[in-house]
Design a protein around this nucleic acid. Structure first.
Lengths: 223, 223
DNA sequence: CAAGCGTTTTAGACGCGGCTAAAACTCTTT
DNA sequence: AAAGAGTTTTAGCCGCGTCTAAAACGCTTG
């Protein structure tokens, strides 16, 4: 049936597109993410473009077509639902579910995915806080702020942790900052860009690599 | 990592070997089962033999090496555990789980399989009654008899239904002869080899295609 | 504005897993 | 023992997905 690697490429292009929706996704960034050479990515781009799944301009990066985005959303949906499933039903540590889901996401029949979704009672997000597209590719776009950009003083809820930052997940867990936790930004160092937060009665200093991998959402009080 | 198709071949060779353990498995039988041409099977045999997973004699069929059998047993284990999981946890009809498991069996990390096993409380068989190898490749070999070969009069329990016979599973379900059901062989026609059974208060006449796809086990009374 | 550097693409190769058509083999059957 | 039928293997092809090395491009910088 459908190519295996193609889907991975499409999903990665989608995720990279999300990060900077303005401009097209570069060959290099996809190659890096996939762990292949730029030449391999170029070759795949040609196949995907031939099949109208991406728009590819020489030396100009790629963009998903609507068709390609549909496919990508399907993969993302499977990926995030499986993560939820692995974490909630099989009790696999949340630091590992991303890698496992990568392995599993292509082999799951739609019916299996749908049943998992029902069993989990239609979860909104994966264990790291990323939204799960529904069966038709729609997905909630909540209003989130990077911890890096948060104003001082506000108390917020951790909403999303970038699972792709190496080593971040165990660190976040150690600090008790998993999605759902509350924190307050108490300080920001304008020189090194460290931030100080208070969470669970403790103070922590977080570097930029952390503060730009954590998304938070305002709690009810908006000011 | 490991090739995808290789594992399918190994598992199919294993299953065919089980059916007639005496002689080696023929090229054609594997090709048929896999739905590929004999030429493709030959090509794969060469790769598998090169990697010491099978013994291959030209024009003489193949046999699994111990190494190859280990791999095959791993695939079979995953396959049957996933079937159980799909049926028991996701409540997918047992007629479909074989096909779905085929799709999924290669993509499952060991830890996921092990956790499924634990969640299911270490089932002995797949939903069709085939035994599930344990983590080390050991598997129970209960004493079963083909319904075709059963002596008249004995009351037995359905133990295993060959899931690979087209259309059999829905038929078996309709007749209420799923694994665990009791039946008694009441007659056998020596000409056309039909058998007559009594099960759940009903009489049924079964053709050879059915009676050699159903395995039964004696109930406590041995005579 | 030309040089140079980093990125991207081309060119050419390889292994996998499939195909068809033709050749080789085996086994049965006269 | 030779012929014929059926199975298996070889030969040659293709597309995928990867690689390396070399060429082409584009952007920044002197």
């Amino acid at each position: 049936m459908s190519g295996l690697a193609r889907e991975d490429y499409l999903a990665d292009i989608y995720r990279l597109q999300c990060e900077r929706p303005k401009d097209p996704v570069s060959t290099g960034s996809v190659a890096d993410r996939r762990g292949v050479t730029a030449a391999s990515a170029t070759a795949m781009f040609k196949r995907l473009a031939r099949d109208h799944l991406i728009v590819y301009r020489n030396y100009g990066g790629v963009t998903l077509t609507p068709e390609g985005e549909d496919l990508a959303l399907g993969v993302v949906r499977r990926h995030r639902l499986v993560e939820r499933f692995l974490a909630d039903v099989l009790h696999i540590p949340w630091q590992q579910v991303d890698a496992y889901a990568d392995q599993m996401e292509h082999a799951l029949p739609d019916e299996v995915v749908d049943r998992m979704e029902a069993l989990l009672e239609n979860p909104y997000t994966c264990p790291h806080g990323y939204p799960i597209p529904d069966k038709h590719g729609h997905l909630a776009q909540p209003h989130l702020v990077l911890l890096r950009d948060l104003p001082l003083g506000e108390t917020v809820r951790v909403a999303r942790v970038n699972e792709r930052v190496p080593g971040l997940l165990p660190y976040i867990e150690e600090l008790g900052l998993m999605p759902g936790s509350l924190l307050r930004l108490t300080g920001r160092n304008p020189i090194d860009l460290n931030v100080t937060i208070e969470a669970g009665g403790q103070e922590h200093i977080l570097g930029l690599r952390v503060s730009e991998a954590l998304w938070v959402e305002p709690t009810e009080a908006k000011g």
